[in-house]
Design a protein around this nucleic acid. Sequence first.
DNA 1: AGCTCTTCCTGAAAGC
DNA 2: TGCTTTCAGGAAGAGC
Length: 293
Amino acid sequence: MPELPEVETVVRGLRASLPGRTFLDVRLGKTDFIDDPIALAERLPGYRVTGVTRLGKFICIGLTPGAPAAPCVDSLYLVIHLGMTGQLTVRHPGDQVAPHTHCFFALDNDCELRYTDIRRFGRILIVPQSGIAVFQDRLGAEPLEITLEEFCARFGSRRARVKALLLDQSVLRGVGNIYADESLFRARIHPARIAASLEQPQLAALHRAVREVLTAAIRLRGSSISDYVDSDGNRGEFQLRHRVYQREAKPCVRCKEKIRRVIVAGRSSHFCPRCQPAPRSGKARSKSMQKVR
DNA sequence: AGCTCTTCCTGAAAGC
DNA sequence: TGCTTTCAGGAAGAGC
């Protein structure tokens, strides 16, 4: 599933082929995942791509009105979230069309940008230039840019489970289930730990682990678990380096203990019971306190 | 504030 | 074999 490293890989691919291109035409299939499909189809033709950026897990394609500039027409962003199974690829019009391809954006160089999404958990919307700041403000910090101080401020005061916070896009933008589990393993922190209970060295280890895991995953062009491919249709390779994600019952790479899977924050969470010791629950603590007394 | 549950959707895998 | 059920999960919303 596409998280920050996968989205970053797609963005880098698009950056090689989209800037300077003008949208000629938009064809849509199913549109229930598009905020305003009519506006999308009517407004986009004539716009030229100025750049491709990433905001957390969102792909932002910057657009400006085409050469014979219509007066008073604003620049805008075509914003795309790949959800669980979204794929954004650049193809030739004659290329075979993958099943569940719902958007075709024709370009002025005999190529087309295609959006394919089996489960349609993705999202496509147009954000005007004037609205991008508000859009960005609803998202948390960029994991590859956040300082240790800000990381500690965002995590150290919260009573939520650390895994839930890692997945919360208004805290950190871009981390999903795979990289949350992989980061917690490297930092040796149990996913169900209350963030505010973490010691300073643990917060520092997690801050570092998140950045290292994401950087390593970008280097290998992301993790392809089921459907993820980059803008050229190629799979990533970081799934070969996963140490806990989808390794339930397999031996821990550090200590050989069997990797376990539990539900934390409503998500399956993989961890090593020896390397990532479980927090003592409130119940257990009060019981032991009673024993002591 | 933060938790759980539900919804969206499809295909793979498990169960019968 | 072939059908039905279950599950996975990013994000948002409801309700506690």
